[in-house]
Deep mutational scan, measured.
Amino acid sequence: MDETGKELVLALYDYQEKSPREVTMKKGDILTLLNSTNKDWWKVEVNDRQGFVPAAYVKKL
């Protein structure tokens, strides 16, 4: 969790967005987890953008 109590995830792999609903991340990025109710796609925030990334590409910290 960060200082505001939000849950964080670590990008395990690079991911290039394939639609406007997704976000690009690089391996090693720390992202804010917004929603993990879907087992396949998690909603995150990175670089002031919100979108989805494959759940298998990130790990909760």
Rank of each mutant, 00 (worst) to 15 (best):
10 L>V: 15
45 E>I: 09
17 E>P: 15
43 K>L: 15
28 G>R: 02
58 V>C: 12
58 V>H: 01
57 Y>D: 03
21 R>F: 12
11 A>D: 00
33 L>P: 00
29 D>S: 07
14 D>G: 06
12 L>C: 07
37 T>K: 11
31 L>V: 06
4 T>Q: 13
1 M>C: 13
41 W>M: 05
18 K>W: 04
18 K>Q: 14
4 T>P: 14
58 V>D: 01
61 L>E: 04
30 I>D: 00
56 A>L: 11
25 M>I: 15
12 L>V: 07
60 K>E: 05
41 W>T: 02
44 V>S: 00
7 E>H: 11
32 T>D: 04
45 E>F: 06
24 T>H: 04
48 D>W: 07
27 K>R: 10
53 V>N: 01
37 T>Y: 09
3 E>R: 05
48 D>K: 10
61 L>M: 09
15 Y>E: 01
11 A>L: 02
15 Y>F: 07
61 L>V: 12
8 L>N: 06
37 T>M: 09
22 E>Q: 09
13 Y>G: 05
44 V>T: 01
17 E>V: 05
26 K>E: 05
27 K>F: 05
47 N>L: 11
13 Y>C: 14
1 M>R: 10
6 K>C: 12
60 K>D: 04
35 N>L: 09
3 E>C: 14
44 V>A: 01
30 I>S: 03
15 Y>N: 00
55 A>E: 03
40 D>Q: 13
4 T>G: 14
20 P>L: 09
14 D>V: 01
39 K>E: 10
39 K>A: 12
8 L>M: 11
14 D>F: 04
23 V>E: 01
12 L>T: 04
32 T>W: 13
44 V>K: 00
34 L>A: 02
38 N>I: 05
25 M>K: 00
9 V>Q: 01
18 K>A: 10
1 M>L: 13
7 E>G: 09
61 L>S: 04
60 K>H: 09
46 V>F: 15
29 D>F: 04
33 L>Q: 00
27 K>N: 04
4 T>E: 13
32 T>A: 11
20 P>I: 09
19 S>E: 09
6 K>A: 11
53 V>H: 00
55 A>T: 06
17 E>M: 12
56 A>N: 13
31 L>P: 01
21 R>S: 14
57 Y>T: 07
17 E>Y: 04
46 V>L: 15
38 N>T: 06
